[in-house]
Simulated assay, not measured.
Amino acid sequence: MKEAKILLKDVVKTYKDQTVMFSIKYLELSQNLYFFTGQNGIGKSVFLRSICGIETFEEGTMKVNGEKILYLTDKSVGFNYLTVIENIELIHKLHGVVLNTENLTHIYGKKQLNVLARNASLGMQMKIGCSLLFIKDHWDIIVLDETLANIDKESRDIFYDLLDKRTSEGTCAIVVTHNELPSSNNLSYTKITMNKEGISIV
């Protein structure tokens, strides 16, 4: 039986006016790859920020098994005045992990690494944070909130493969996407859907 990485019981999230945004009676997420779907504005991002400790639930209990959390959104983590490679080196240093530059050849052309982030395409910028997915045996929880939406399909498939590898090491990975879910027979994942009634696992 897989170990629970995130356990929620009777949690409630409300708006500032105390209107209930969503409530979840029970949810257990383990070392698995989850694709998180639901209409815009339903509360997916708020839910993910809450389980990552950026926001809080007003009611209920939450247990998170692990401290090394990688949380990326649909915004670039790079600095405009640094090159792509300088940003990648910086983010690895900030997370205390070692960069293997050979991995970058799978997602960047050689000339792309020396482009200033402000001149890079959105996809190139988003891959700066995603380069951390190459790190082995490190992450307890990975959350990608629309992070892969503007990345080319070839690179996106590479990141899906990396997520699959990380979950085999014991990571719980949650990916929010409005793209078509991957159809590869080699990729094992579970679908989570959020609606007004709460969250269901397919």
Rank of each mutant, 00 (worst) to 15 (best):
residue 39 Q to T: 15
residue 37 T to G: 04
residue 44 K to V: 12
residue 179 N to V: 00
residue 152 D to R: 01
residue 82 L to I: 01
residue 133 L to I: 05
residue 65 N to P: 00
residue 77 V to Q: 06
residue 19 T to Y: 07
residue 83 T to C: 10
residue 134 F to Y: 12
residue 13 K to C: 08
residue 12 V to S: 12
residue 144 L to K: 03
residue 115 V to E: 14
residue 43 G to W: 05
residue 197 E to D: 10
residue 191 K to Y: 02
residue 133 L to W: 07
residue 88 I to L: 06
residue 41 G to K: 00
residue 158 I to V: 15
residue 192 I to C: 03
residue 121 S to V: 09
residue 195 N to L: 02
residue 63 K to R: 13
residue 122 L to E: 13
residue 7 L to H: 07
residue 123 G to N: 05
residue 87 N to R: 03
residue 37 T to C: 06
residue 187 L to I: 14
residue 131 S to P: 08
residue 173 A to S: 04
residue 5 K to A: 02
residue 138 H to F: 12
residue 68 K to A: 07
residue 141 I to W: 04
residue 115 V to C: 09
residue 78 G to E: 13
residue 48 L to I: 01
residue 180 E to A: 09
residue 191 K to H: 11
residue 41 G to V: 02
residue 69 I to R: 09
residue 74 D to C: 06
residue 127 K to Q: 09
residue 89 E to K: 11
residue 43 G to N: 08
residue 97 V to W: 11
residue 178 H to E: 12
residue 120 A to F: 02
residue 198 G to Q: 03
residue 47 F to N: 08
residue 102 E to M: 01
residue 161 D to V: 01
residue 149 A to R: 10
residue 13 K to S: 08
residue 188 S to P: 03
residue 184 S to V: 11
residue 140 D to P: 01
residue 155 S to H: 03
residue 52 C to W: 04
residue 36 F to G: 13
residue 115 V to L: 13
residue 97 V to E: 08
residue 17 D to W: 09
residue 95 H to M: 08
residue 86 E to K: 05
residue 119 N to V: 00
residue 33 L to P: 07
residue 18 Q to F: 13
residue 160 Y to M: 02
residue 162 L to N: 11
residue 144 L to I: 02
residue 163 L to D: 01
residue 42 I to M: 06
residue 34 Y to S: 12
residue 49 R to E: 05
residue 199 I to E: 02
residue 74 D to S: 14
residue 143 V to F: 13
residue 100 N to F: 11
residue 138 H to M: 02
residue 180 E to G: 02
residue 81 Y to E: 14
residue 56 T to M: 06
residue 34 Y to E: 09
residue 71 Y to Q: 04
residue 152 D to M: 02
residue 98 V to S: 15
